[in-house]
Design a protein around this nucleic acid. Structure first.
Length: 782
RNA sequence: GCCGCGGUGGCGGAACCGGUAGACGCGCAGGACUCAAAAUCCUGUAUGGGCAACCAUGUGCGGGUUCGAUUCCCGCCCGCGGCACCA
């Protein structure tokens, strides 16, 4: 008979809540363990079965750690700012804050129904003014440190969201979020100088325990390359002030083969070097390429285009006059925006040279050092990483806490200011948070201005510096801001005088284990590492790297192996699964379905199979008899040990399989009470509701969660006898049972007693016997 | 193109450090219980041959190393993920 999961689950969820057993203590003798999942974006669609994959896995880890005597922090919260909510609010004429409240209520209810051992007393929400007060405060720290600056740049503009995007948010030339078309637009944007941390973000990867593929992806994204900057002197220059074109190259050794130079269309020297007769054509080319999006420009299947400036420069190695071209295959944002083209050694240069009939010469290579010395070059390092575009022209985000004061802007630039920040006055800490105005309309504008710009009451304010009239910054922060430091807030979520108390930070940081999606490797993970490093440099947090260990989970796919999506109608609703089969079945199945890091298709039949197993466990416990119990330690112990090890190795699928094997092996033999208790404790993190029910049924006191993790008795882990294959010439011809440490003579004697082995040895000469105790016996014959 | 990961039964997947390939689950087939069904339990289930014992083949393909290779090496093919004119 099947157990009543609804009754059982409500009962124990209720008891956990009342006992407060999952609340982390901020001090004590126990070793701390900070276990973190990426907090969800509370979308209107509710929880997806993908969410519990990560949460259940770390729940198992967190629960095991508690059993092992750790003080565990396993918190939860909401990353609730963002476009979907804002767009939905606009469409329905409602307020984003109201929608967020409804969505978080739904998510909270759904997550609680899974019996996850979160510390709900520390719930945070990035849209809560008490939270974003500190996000704003941290922005001002960036500002005061000179890392936040405003600049005009050609940004990626999503024509659908009407919002500027960071490079990281443009995927295949379209908006990461909505798939909308992205074009170039000049906008004034707040930037954060993450590139100043490029080297440390790269180097410190060596100090953390992340999955190697995560490290690789971060390294590639940071994109360090070492090379040299070399000056090419302009020939026939009329202008004595700018006589050189600086190029960056990773291959100074090829400089003898450099037969022309190329400037990016945006390069500042383009107009200066272009000769009068070429000017019209060059300007036309520059204009055309300015209209192209990155996608169009970056499409290397297209033929390369460019235009000759009419100017020449001297190759410093050969002293030859080489022509200067403008072409959009050279990017302004990388290196110096100018290259020396070596068609002999570089595919792109060759392709270009072939189109425009430029010389391709095969000159001998020299050493890099020699080339740098001979040409007066300088060794330099370049990164692909760009500064972080931090402005969004939307309503539902943290207001940037700065005001612009015309009067202050007219004063001379003070120390610590730059031309880019001059006139921008930080809002004093005691005035934080700058809250979002509670208004009816906040549609994005086609002009690219934030909806906040139209709310005059809010925009016009007084300058905190001089008391004169001033305007608020109307851009808001990107979604990534609040999520860049939430792990710090969990440590002290209700503190109103600082973002988190220093002693508590010192106690809890760093995060011991962090799990999240691979899609966040170059966005959230990189940003939050950077953010934490910055706070560390300012003396606000105790460690430079926020996460000691990082894992990632694979997607849960639809039954047919495709991605689950609302439009395809193949989304599995966790509520229905919990209602029909129970949270324990869902948790256990989702861990069992496949390797944690790989994408795996959902299977309802698979889930039902796991539910059958739970029923079997329930029946076993109810049918269990103390009298006549067998001492089956030798059977049980190896399975439980394997489960324990598998949890540490993130092999939850084989852990669940071990439980199944264990119960298959037990059959209907009753084990001793102590043995049964051990089984229940180890299975507890996987199916906590049912295990508590079983615990209670046995008449044991307290909660399963209060029990210690069992010690494993080494003597029980050693098998008395193993079954071992016998091979003749490498082919299996039989199998024998013997003590794992039996010597060769014993093994050989047993093997020779096997009829089938004898048959294969008949009339042959034994030339060699390979015996690996407990593994194999191989008899080689001729 | 570059970087990373992977390819094992009808399906999801196991396999320590090179040691009986296919654990565990699903599905399927047969049986028990039942008036019947559901549930549960038992048996079988890589492929081909054989009543069976057993034999041959078998972890994407082709080679190699080894007493022995899913595992290591060389050369391919295919799939997935990331990056992509980064000089």
């Amino acid at each position: 008979m099947a157990y009543n999961h609804q009754e059982v689950e409500h009962k124990w969820q209720d008891r956990w809540e009342k006992s407060g057993i999952f609340h982390a203590k901020d001090e004590g003798d126990k070793p701390k363990f900070y276990c973190l999942i990426e907090f969800p974006y509370p979308s209107g669609d509710g929880l997806h079965v993908g969410h519990p994959r990560s949460y259940s896995a770390l729940d198992v880890v967190a629960r095991k750690k508690r059993h092992q005597g750790h003080n565990v922090l396993y918190p939860i919260g909401w990353d609730a700012f963002g476009l979907p909510t804002e767009n939905y609010a606009i469409k329905t004429g409602r307020k984003p804050a109201d929608i967020t409240r409804e969505n978080t209520d739904t998510f909270r209810r759904q997550l609680k129904s899974l019996g996850l051992s979160f510390d709900w007393s520390r719930e945070v929400n990035t849209t809560d003014p008490a939270y974003y007060k500190w996000t704003q405060w941290m922005f001002l720290e960036f500002f005061k440190a000179g890392l936040a600056y405003k600049t005009t740049l050609a940004i990626n503009w999503c024509t659908s969201c009407k919002i500027g995007l960071a490079n990281e948010e443009v995927v295949n030339g379209v908006c990461e979020r909505c798939g909308g078309r992205v074009e170039k637009r000049d906008k004034e944007q707040w930037m954060i100088a993450i590139t100043k941390y490029a080297e440390r973000l790269l180097e410190d990867l060596d100090t953390v325990d992340y999955l190697e593929k995560i490290k690789t992806q971060q390294r590639n994204w940071i994109g360090k390359s070492e090379g040299a900057e070399i000056d090419f002197v302009l020939a026939d220059s009329q202008d004595p002030v700018t006589p050189v074109v600086k190029v960056f190259t990773t291959r100074p050794d090829t400089i003898f083969g450099a037969t022309y130079l190329v400037l990016a269309p945006e390069h500042e020297l383009v107009e200066q070097v272009t000769t009068d007769d070429r000017m019209k054509e060059v300007l036309a080319y520059v204009h055309t390429s300015s209209l192209k999006t990155d996608m169009e420009r970056g499409n290397d299947t297209k033929e390369k285009t460019g235009v000759f400036t009419g100017a020449y420069a001297f190759n410093p190695a050969t002293n030859e006059r080489i022509p200067i071209w403008v072409a959009d295959y050279v990017l302004m944002g990388y290196g110096t925006g100018a290259i020396m083209a070596v068609p002999q050694h570089d595919e792109r240069d060759r392709a270009f040279a072939e189109v425009y009939k430029l010389p391709i010469v095969d000159e001998p290579l020299v050493s890099n050092e020699e080339a740098i010395e001979k040409t007066g070059g300088r060794k330099t390092v370049n990164y692909k990483l760009r500064d972080w575009v931090f402005s969004r022209q939307r309503y539902w985000g943290e207001p940037i806490p700065l005001v612009y004061c015309e009067a202050c802007a007219k004063l001379p630039v003070k120390e610590g200011e730059t031309a880019q920040t001059h006139g921008w006055i930080p809002v004093p800490v005691e005035q934080l948070p700058i809250t979002l105005p509670d208004v009816e309309h906040y549609e994005p504008t086609d002009t690219g201005e934030s909806p906040l710009a139209t709310i005059e009451d809010w925009v016009y304010t007084t300058c905190p510096e001089c008391g004169g009239p001033a305007r608020r910054e109307t851009d808001t922060m990107p979604n990534w801001a609040g999520s860049s430091w939430y792990f710090l807030r969990y440590i002290d979520p209700h503190n109103d005088s600082t973002f988190a108390n220093k002693e508590k930070l010192a106690y809890w940081m760093p995060v011991d284990l962090y799990n999240g999606g691979m899609e966040h490797t170059t966005l959230h993970l990189l940003y939050s590492r950077f953010w934490n490093k910055f706070l560390f440099d300012r003396g606000h947090v105790p460690v430079s790297e926020p996460y000691t260990r990082r894992h990632s989970h694979g997607l849960v796919l639809a039954e047919d192996g495709s991605k689950m999506s609302k439009s395809k109608g193949n989304v599995v609703n966790p509520d229905e699964i919990v209602r029909d089969y129970g949270a324990d079945a869902l948790r256990l199945y989702i861990l069992f379905m496949g390797p944690f890091e790989e994408p795996v298709p959902w299977s309802l039949n698979g889930l039902i199979g796991v539910r059958r197993f739970l029923d079997k466990v329930d029946r076993y416990v109810r049918g269990w008899k103390e009298e006549g119990a067998h001492d089956l330690g030798k059977v049980i112990e190896p399975y439980l040990k394997k489960v324990s090890d598998d949890i540490d190795a993130f092999k939850f699928n084989t852990a669940v399989a071990s439980f199944m094997s264990l119960f298959n092996d037990l059959g209907d033999r009753s084990v001793t009470r102590e043995q049964l208790k051990k089984i229940i404790i180890v299975l507890g993190p996987f199916a906590p509701h049912l295990m508590n029910e079983c615990w209670e049924y046995l008449g044991e006191a307290g909660l399963v969660e209060e029990q210690s993790w069992p010690e494993f008795d080494e003597s029980l882990l050693v098998k008395d006898e193993v079954e071992m294959g016998v091979q003749v010439n490498g082919k299996v011809r039989g199998s024998i049972r013997l003590a794992p440490q039996a010597d060769e003579a014993v093994a050989k004697a047993l093997a020779l007693a096997e009829e089938n082995v004898q048959k294969h040895l008949e009339g042959k000469e034994v030339v060699k016997v390979v015996y690996v105790p407990g593994r194999i016996l191989n008899i080689v014959v001729r």
